[in-house]
């Protein structure tokens, strides 16, 4: 039934389809990077540095003469991985944590929320830097740092939605029909609350990619020669009259974020039967 709705959505919901195509495009590009990219992404050729886009270099070259097209294609491997893994983990952790706090309520809720607020009380970037520095700088640790920093926001959103959902009479009705707390939580409350968190997750993907690049820029995350979208944008800022240096990796982040957003909207439609009807 879910699959059928999904297939129908693909046919009817153009935004969702576009979102899927965009994301699929970048994922394929990242996987097939060695086949697609015409140059080695870290090979320098100072003879052609800062060249504008041309037939030889579709997206031009940067200040070391590296081919930006190849770097953008390869860059997806890092940026997408970091962004997607972070967002997926954070959505799972945050929504379960928030749902438990919101549903159980009382002292449990207080303790759980205060714990999450401890993390929120630090500036996001600085906390991420500290965690990253403490764990040691590599891709995996940076993702962990991003997750630690981002999940409380998701948990808070989920909790507030759950608190309003659990007051609905169908929850009471489910109790009266003998459904256990666990069942009510995961069959009644969770699916009725998750859509706003999913929307938040898809809009947050772009953010996480940018935060990851900020960390990279600061010397955490991925190290300089690595082609990574966010880092390429920040490198390109020094050459703002050469639009292609920052422009193309920026475009990559932008399209990826938009694509994820479209998917988020589509997912909400799948999860909401009222919209499903209009779409299908």
């Amino acid at each position: 039934m879910f699959l059928k709705a999904f297939l129908r959505l693909i046919r009817k919901n153009y935004l969702f389809t576009a979102g899927c195509l965009i994301c699929l495009f970048w994922i394929l590009a990242a996987i097939l990077a060695p086949v697609i990219a015409p140059y080695d992404p870290i090979a320098q050729d100072l003879a052609v540095k800062l060249n504008p886009p041309s037939a030889a270099h579709f997206f031009g070259t940067d200040n070391f003469g590296r081919d930006i097209f190849s770097r953008v294609i390869y860059g997806g491997r890092y940026s997408l991985l970091a962004g997607v893994v972070t967002v997926v983990c954070v959505t799972i952790i945050g929504s379960i944590y928030g749902a438990i706090a919101g549903y159980v309520g009382g002292v449990v809720d207080d303790v759980m929320m205060r714990l999450s607020e401890v993390i929120l009380s630090f500036p996001q970037l600085i906390l991420a830097m500290c965690i990253n520095a403490a764990l040691g700088s590599n891709l995996f640790n940076t993702i962990i740092a991003l997750i630690v920093v981002a999940w409380p926001g998701y948990a808070r959103l989920m909790r507030s939605v759950v608190i309003s959902v659990k007051e609905n009479q169908y929850i009471e009705a489910a109790e009266a029909l003998g459904a256990s707390k666990f069942r009510i939580m995961f069959r009644e409350i969770f699916p009725n609350s998750i859509s706003s968190v999913l929307i938040m997750a898809t809009t947050d993907l772009g953010n996480q990619i940018l935060l990851f690049s900020t960390l990279s820029f600061l010397g955490l995350g991925s190290a300089p020669p690595t082609p990574e979208w966010g880092m390429m944008v920040s490198d390109g800022v020094s050459y703002f009259n050469k639009f292609w240096v920052a422009g193309f990796p920026g475009l990559a982040i932008f399209t990826m974020a938009v694509g994820a957003n479209f998917i988020g909207d589509g997912l909400r439609d799948i999860l909401d039967p009222k919209l499903r009807k209009q779409v299908g």
């Binding site: 609905n168 009479q169 009705a173 489910a174 069959r187 009644e188 009725n192």
Partner: peptide
């Protein structure tokens, strides 16, 4: 309240 007693999804 039959309107709200059924799980909408």
């Amino acid at each position: 309240e039959p309107m709200t007693s059924l799980n909408p999804i």
